[in-house]
Amino acid sequence: MIDFIDYLLGGISSGAIIALMALALVLVWRSTRVVNFAQLGQAMFTTYIALTVRELTGSWFLGLIIAMAAGLVVGVIVHFLVIRPVKRLDTSGAIIATFGVLIALEALAAMVWGGDPEAFPPPINNSGYEAFGRIWPFSPYDLLVLASVVFLVLALSVVFTRTNVGLAMRASAFNPEVARLSGVRVNRMLALGWAIAGLVGAVAGVLVAPLSTLSPTSFDIFLVFAFTAAVIGGLDSLVGAVAFGIGTGLVIALVSGYSDSSNAPLVALVLLVLNLLFKPEGVFSHHKARAV
């Protein structure tokens, strides 16, 4: 029993980070109906930027802020330079193009920062809290991760539900034609969706880096988990992405704890298949069915 609790506690922060990554995928899907397989490539790239800033200034926080700004910019660049031109021709082409962006970003990162894994130490203590005479697998850093994710998700939900720009973004996602007829500049809203996704991905990248190491391909595995969470959540539901992101993190922690962490991607795949078999439209989706 105590193992079970340990595994769950250990999975909370990675679950929260997967939730952010899934959220980034959903934000892009909602705005342009494209699954952005380069999302974590962008996050890897901005995390390298954070690492560089941190090495130059010694400030983790400044690194995070710069990475967030870079995430915004990279999201907009990818949208305007790659997705919009390709999507004008063919939607599935745009999805393939995101793979191209991923490969290009990984190659570029290897050229700039080298291919070897780099340490990205946590800014605060990452050893577990002590209580009731034992050490629990939940550290001050985990708490920082959790607090950051909660803050970001709350901030996003305020933007989406309480502001004009959030309303315009939601309307552009649900019905671009009605939004345009109401006077919303829909193309800007789509670009903004990519920008915010880039920012959210950048935060996820900086937060996840201390849990392993940073290399051009070290985030690839998280794409599997985030994609699983986003799809099960319904791909266009922000709530679904967060709920199933955390859920996926916990399941992975249990699988890794009771068997071996190398089984985690397999379990994610099984979850994805089960979802597509029994509830292909996703749990929180607005739409009735989705072709698979």
């Binding site: 004009n164 309303l167 315009a168 939601r170 309307a171 649900f174 939004a179 006077g183």
Partner: peptide, 13 residues
């Protein structure tokens, strides 16, 4: 998916 008032507020932002 939007409320009545949100549908209205969409017009003329």
């Amino acid at each position: 998916d939007l409320t009545v008032e949100e549908n209205l507020k969409l017009g003329g932002m």
